[in-house]
Design a protein around this nucleic acid. Structure first.
Lengths: 158, 158
DNA sequence: ATTAATCTCTACTTTGTCTGTCAAGAATAA
DNA sequence: TTATTCTTGACAGACAAAGTAGAGATTAAT
């Protein structure tokens, strides 16, 4: 019943981007250093987030990733969903007969009381995650007096 | 972010016991047959539930397991907690320095915004599970017209 | 007392997922 | 042209989940 590191790192990384957002795209190496996440691994996570339409990227020098939408339009739910693949606490709730699977995930199918229980729980969890945006986290960060690191690349331009 | 089968089987099995409750203790083999759970595996799960004080057992012929409390005093949360071990969506919320562990689970410790986020989510989930008792599930079952299997052991006494 | 039914405990195996690492390639700004 | 950065896919080690198995302890019934 644990969230995977992909979800946790994903939220941390995207928060980091929103918090330190500048004019230039953010680079993996900076985010990974600030958040102490393996850069190679973060790349993978960002691929997922990009596929989900939460990030956009630019290659080449001065390239990097940036948020695909304003911070107040990106919810924790979207990030977790993209990283985790889905937001169900249990598999038997899922659609049957998706490609390749011949057996339903559960023998009792719709006769099952507990199925409804888990589905409701998953929904409650999703609703909570949906109520929190990256902007909310940034506001919290400011309140806490969390330091923003100066973008070292600005140094060259001053 | 999936619940383990221990939780799911545990809830199903305990619901089954509450729903089919008779004067005699329920036996593993009956529950496992009705709920289609490996009897050996169910034994293990029942050990956990017994340690948690949710079940009591009697050995020998006509032995078996029975609920340690009335069905309306056993919540889903208790069962999941006993089967899952804990109810936290992430580890970094846990107490540090428990036996053997030298490192904190997270480098940012209490400086972390997301830590609070996950803790709150875990709590919301726990609250929901706490609001549902075995009796609630039984009532639902009756409403749905879920069949009760006649206890075959009664046959001998009629 | 004996027997058969049942729970108890511990260890083992299998299987799969998580968490990363690595290498080679493609795109792009300077 | 070149250095930088993202892109993609393969791969591996560690760990936990899920289930199997066997030997033993307890007890009701005979």
């Amino acid at each position: 019943m644990k969230l995977s590191t992909k979800s946790r790192y994903g939220v941390r990384a995207m928060f980091d981007m929103a918090y330190h957002a500048g004019t230039l795209p953010a680079q993996i190496k900076d985010i990974s250093r600030r958040q102490n996440i393996s850069p190679r691994y973060l790349e993978q996570i960002f691929q997922d987030l990009k596929k989900a339409g939460l990030l956009k990227s630019r290659r080449g020098p001065q390239g990097g990733y940036s948020l695909a939408k304003p911070a107040d339009e990106i919810t924790v739910r979207e990030i977790v969903l993209a990283a985790e693949g889905e937001l169900q606490l249990v598999d038997c709730v899922k659609n049957r007969r998706k490609k390749g699977e011949k057996e339903p995930a559960c023998d009792f199918d719709n006769q099952c009381l507990t199925q409804h229980l888990w589905a409701k729980a998953s929904q409650i969890l999703g609703d909570y995650f949906d109520s929190i945006t990256l902007k909310d986290l940034c506001d919290q960060g400011k309140e806490m007096g969390l330091e923003k690191e100066l973008d070292h690349r600005f140094m060259y331009f001053i």
